[in-house]
Computed example of a mutant assay.
Amino acid sequence: MPKPIEEIQKEVVEEFSDLTDWEEKFQYLIELGEALPSYPEDKKVEEYLVPGCQSRVWLYPKEDSGNLQFLADSDTALTKGLIAILIRVFSDHKPQEIAEASLSFIDEIGLSKFLSISRRNGLNSMVNLLKNYAKNPNV
């Protein structure tokens, strides 16, 4: 059984609290993105593009035993790291858990303060799409 979403968020906050400055945090985000599983080329289509992102971000949901799992990719390293964190928090959970989750960790690790406005908007678009998939899980 997967860890609760709140517990995963706490782990992410702890990992980021060990990093001393934003250069280290951005480097860590890039490393998280590099560690994402490969994204299927046949899913790099308009249907799975996240609307509202300056970068191209693909997000593919699939259902497995009542839980949602997500695959993602992006054409920029930092954005790929952002979606990697969101996937880590949300994947392998029931749609209702995802839809109802608060995402306090985004503010706790400082992403809202240190991302540019366009990246912040893109992050919000990714969160909204993940939650929309949870609210309409017929993927």
Score class of each variant (00 low, 15 high):
14 E>I: 11
69 Q>G: 03
119 R>T: 13
23 E>Q: 10
15 E>A: 15
81 G>M: 10
111 L>R: 02
126 M>L: 12
102 S>H: 13
3 K>Q: 14
137 P>F: 09
112 S>M: 12
61 P>T: 04
128 N>T: 15
87 I>H: 04
51 P>Y: 05
39 Y>R: 06
51 P>K: 11
49 L>T: 13
84 A>W: 01
133 Y>E: 14
111 L>D: 08
51 P>W: 10
54 Q>G: 07
7 E>L: 03
1 M>G: 10
25 K>G: 00
29 L>H: 09
86 L>D: 01
88 R>H: 09
79 T>M: 13
99 A>F: 12
48 Y>Q: 03
57 V>E: 04
24 E>M: 06
16 F>D: 13
89 V>G: 06
61 P>W: 04
109 I>A: 01
105 F>A: 14
128 N>C: 10
77 A>H: 01
136 N>L: 03
127 V>Q: 11
111 L>I: 00
39 Y>F: 15
123 L>C: 09
130 L>I: 15
14 E>W: 00
56 R>W: 10
66 G>K: 00
114 F>G: 10
124 N>S: 12
13 V>I: 15
82 L>I: 10
51 P>G: 03
19 L>H: 00
3 K>T: 02
90 F>E: 08
52 G>N: 04
30 I>D: 10
9 Q>I: 03
118 S>L: 09
30 I>R: 06
58 W>T: 11
135 K>Y: 00
123 L>I: 02
116 S>V: 06
30 I>C: 07
139 V>A: 08
126 M>A: 08
11 E>Y: 06
83 I>E: 01
126 M>H: 11
134 A>K: 01
4 P>A: 13
9 Q>S: 14
121 N>S: 13
94 K>T: 06
111 L>Y: 02
4 P>F: 05
8 I>F: 08
70 F>V: 00
109 I>G: 04
59 L>C: 01
36 L>T: 13
49 L>W: 06
130 L>F: 13
16 F>S: 15
103 L>N: 12
77 A>I: 02
98 I>F: 02
80 K>P: 12
48 Y>S: 08
126 M>P: 08
136 N>W: 01
136 N>D: 13
119 R>P: 14
84 A>I: 10
122 G>K: 06
71 L>Q: 15
27 Q>Y: 09
46 E>R: 15
39 Y>E: 03
18 D>C: 11
50 V>M: 07
59 L>A: 02
4 P>D: 04
112 S>A: 13
55 S>Q: 07
28 Y>S: 09
39 Y>D: 03
54 Q>E: 15
134 A>T: 03
70 F>Y: 06
38 S>Y: 07
40 P>M: 12
105 F>D: 15
29 L>E: 02
6 E>P: 10
72 A>N: 04
118 S>I: 05
120 R>I: 00
93 H>P: 05
114 F>W: 14
102 S>F: 01
100 E>M: 11
122 G>H: 06
15 E>Q: 14
76 T>R: 04
122 G>V: 09
106 I>F: 07
115 L>Q: 01
105 F>M: 14
129 L>P: 09
1 M>V: 05
134 A>D: 05
106 I>Q: 03
91 S>Y: 11
